[in-house]
């Protein structure tokens, strides 16, 4: 016999996943709205550079040259190289540079403000974030269990994963 409760839950999950997909597509179709602070980004400039000449934009990319400073904007497998003017902070190739300013002709960009993320810090962010994800995964696995029907808290944490017991939270 089909469990009505299960059918209802499946329907709800399908409905929620559909809503999420609608949001993914709707957001993908949005145009920049500078008046709302949503400036044209890498994707917009790669899609149609000419359209944004003379307008404000906010883009980021990897530094591929330091004299002049050139960053590579990337969207999927498409890239453009953007030469920056009016920005003289120290940067090294491989750093990530986010800039806000005016889109100019011939793939140049007049920087009003820029933020540099050194390569080392980018690596740090990924390593520490991965460690956090692992820590949380262990907590979830040791403290919650699937009872065949629901996710429920374990009465005692699973000892293999948390040998010192329930002392950390």
């Amino acid at each position: 016999m089909i469990d009505l409760n299960t059918v209802k839950r499946v329907m709800i999950v399908i409905l929620l996943l559909t809503s999420l997909c609608i949001l993914f597509i709707y957001h993908g179709s949005l145009d920049p709205a500078p008046e709302m602070g949503a400036y044209p980004n890498e994707e917009d400039l790669i899609d149609d550079y000419e359209r944004y000449i003379g307008e404000e934009a906010e883009v980021g990319g990897k530094v591929i040259s330091t004299d002049p400073i050139i960053i590579e904007l990337e969207h999927g497998d498409r890239t453009i190289d953007l030469e920056l003017t009016g920005f003289d902070d120290d940067v090294e190739e491989g750093d990530h540079l986010s800039v806000y300013g005016i889109v100019r002709q011939d793939l140049t960009f007049e920087v009003k403000n820029g933020v540099v993320r050194p390569f080392f810090n980018i690596v740090y962010m990924y390593v520490i974030s991965f460690a956090a994800a692992m820590w949380l995964a262990f907590r979830i696995l040791s403290q919650w269990r699937w009872n065949g029907d629901h996710l429920e808290p374990r009465e005692k944490p699973m000892s293999i994963l948390l040998p010192r017991g329930d002392e950390d939270g």
């Binding site: 929620l16 809503s19 999420l20 949001l23 993914f24 597509i25 957001h27 949005l30 629901h150 429920e152």
Partner: peptide, 26 residues
């Protein structure tokens, strides 16, 4: 078709994800 993961990092998207998880909680 247009597509973006960004909604996951907004109130609307994260709320839907939380609702999906909640369906599986007693």
């Amino acid at each position: 078709i247009p597509f973006s993961w960004t909604p996951l990092h907004t109130t609307g998207g994260v709320l839907i994800v939380i609702l999906i998880i909640t369906v599986f909680i007693p």
